[in-house]
Simulated assay, not measured.
Amino acid sequence: MNLGRAAVACFLFLAQPHVAAAMGQAAAKATPPGQAEATRAQVDAARGQAKAEDQKNKDLKKRVDALETNSQASRKALEERDQKIAELERQLEAARHP
């Protein structure tokens, strides 16, 4: 009796992948053709949107880089101007009190 149960259990265990595959094929056949096309269209739309957002991110990164470069150049120009003003103030003070 135990040998019979073991044989049935072994059969069910080994047959499980084949039954699951057959059920998957039946489920795939049951899917309406229009639904597959709609899903494909949604996937294509999502890919297009992702591509557009990637391009937008690249453009924004370029803009940020340009703004940072301009900011650094402006900061340097202000520092040079401040140094020039300080030097001119020292010269003026020295000229007032010889």
Rank of each mutant, 00 (worst) to 15 (best):
V8F: 07
V8M: 11
A9C: 04
A9K: 11
C10T: 13
C10L: 12
F11L: 12
F11P: 00
F11R: 03
F13E: 10
L14R: 06
L14A: 09
L14P: 01
L14V: 13
L14N: 03
A15R: 07
Q16G: 11
P17E: 05
P17H: 09
P17R: 06
P17S: 08
H18T: 09
H18K: 04
V19R: 10
A20Y: 04
A20C: 05
A21N: 09
A21D: 10
A22M: 09
M23C: 09
M23E: 14
M23L: 15
G24L: 13
Q25K: 11
Q25I: 05
A26L: 14
A26N: 03
A27L: 15
A27P: 03
A27E: 15
A28F: 09
K29H: 08
K29N: 10
K29F: 07
K29R: 13
K29W: 11
A30R: 07
A30W: 06
A30N: 07
A30L: 15
T31E: 15
T31D: 09
P32F: 11
P32T: 11
P32Q: 15
P33I: 10
P33E: 14
P33V: 13
G34A: 15
G34T: 10
Q35T: 15
Q35D: 11
Q35A: 14
A38R: 11
A38I: 09
T39H: 07
R40E: 15
R40H: 08
R40L: 15
A41C: 03
A41L: 09
A41V: 08
Q42A: 13
V43F: 10
V43A: 13
V43I: 15
V43M: 04
V43L: 13
V43Q: 06
V43H: 04
A45T: 06
A46T: 08
R47K: 13
R47Q: 08
R47E: 10
R47P: 00
G48C: 04
G48E: 09
Q49L: 11
Q49M: 04
A50F: 04
A50D: 05
K51C: 01
K51D: 14
A52S: 11
A52W: 01
A52E: 12
A52P: 01
A52H: 03
A52D: 12
E53W: 02
E53P: 00
E53K: 08
E53S: 04
D54S: 07
Q55S: 05
Q55W: 01
Q55D: 11
K56P: 00
K56I: 00
N57Q: 02
N57H: 06
N57W: 02
K58H: 07
D59C: 00
D59F: 01
D59T: 03
D59W: 01
L60M: 05
L60K: 06
L60I: 06
L60P: 00
L60D: 05
K61L: 06
K61G: 01
K62F: 03
K62I: 01
R63E: 14
R63T: 07
V64L: 13
V64C: 01
V64A: 08
D65I: 02
D65H: 04
A66H: 05
A66K: 11
A66E: 12
A66M: 03
L67C: 05
E68M: 08
E68K: 13
E68P: 00
T69C: 01
T69G: 00
T69K: 15
N70C: 01
N70A: 10
N70V: 00
